[in-house]
Amino acid sequence: MNRFLLSDRSFETINHTVLLIVVALITYPLLYVASASISDPAAVSMGRMWLWPVEITFDGYKRVFADNTIWRGYLNTTLYTAVGTVLHLVVLLPCAYALSRKELIAKPLVLWIILFTMLFSGGLIPTYLVVKGLGMLDTIWAMVIPNVVGAWSILVAHAFFKQTIPEELVEASKIDGASYFTVFLKVVLPLSAPIIATMGLFHAVSLWSQYFNALIYLSDQTMYPLQLVLRQILITSQIGDIGPQGGTHPGEIESLAEQIKIASLIKYSVMIVAALPLLLVYPFLQRFFIKGVLVGSIKE
């Protein structure tokens, strides 16, 4: 009995230690980026900054916020995310609700049509040709329509409706002469806040983070979402306007070394500016996200 208690205690110690190390390893890069974004870039590149900020400077943020491309990217992304999320819900919810009604005789056929798209797709090129053929290139529609809804979301929402909307309530309203449309708007939707939040959030996050659709469907730089602007700054290193030349002190000539340092400071600041909104918001909405993962895993 004693041995068993002891082994349990050492298990506990080992488990806690390992978990703590894993959590620290996952958190560290985020903390590092945050600290680097307000530390003197020389200290960062020399390795003098390793956890907390040193020789604090807000130059990076000043340049990022003074930059039009980033603001425009932010605005575009906000617009695409808002419009895209509303469209997603408008397409998703009625369809999922209809599928949850047992009087829908075509249900197996419709489900099959939807589920088959999970298994097989025409691929990148034919999809691109359809979007192009519809004249959607370089319009907001290319950002919000080609992925407006997925089979997975429909399955999840349909399972939710089936489980949570009380049949008696729907029947009672129908006897009162309400149409499906009225029942859906007045009875079903008010009861569906959790699924609306979950589905909306999932879609909003994916719209906020996507870059590939913008890469292939947009050529007009003024329409670029934030992620494409970030790609230029962070990966292809086109610092461009926000770079040292067009910085906060016009006319002041900065040395090449200075330019490189500022460029790296800007990169860290940009990462924070781009990632912070979601990182700040998600802990408060965590339960909705988790619900989404879990409902999605329920097997039919």
Binding site: T27, Q227, L230, L234, A275, L279
Partner: peptide, 17 residues
């Protein structure tokens, strides 16, 4: 909460990091 955090960072920022 801490281990979920990186999931919410976009691919572009991850590669930038």
């Amino acid at each position: 909460t801490l281990t979920y955090a990186p999931h919410f960072i976009s691919t572009v920022v991850i590669v930038g990091m």
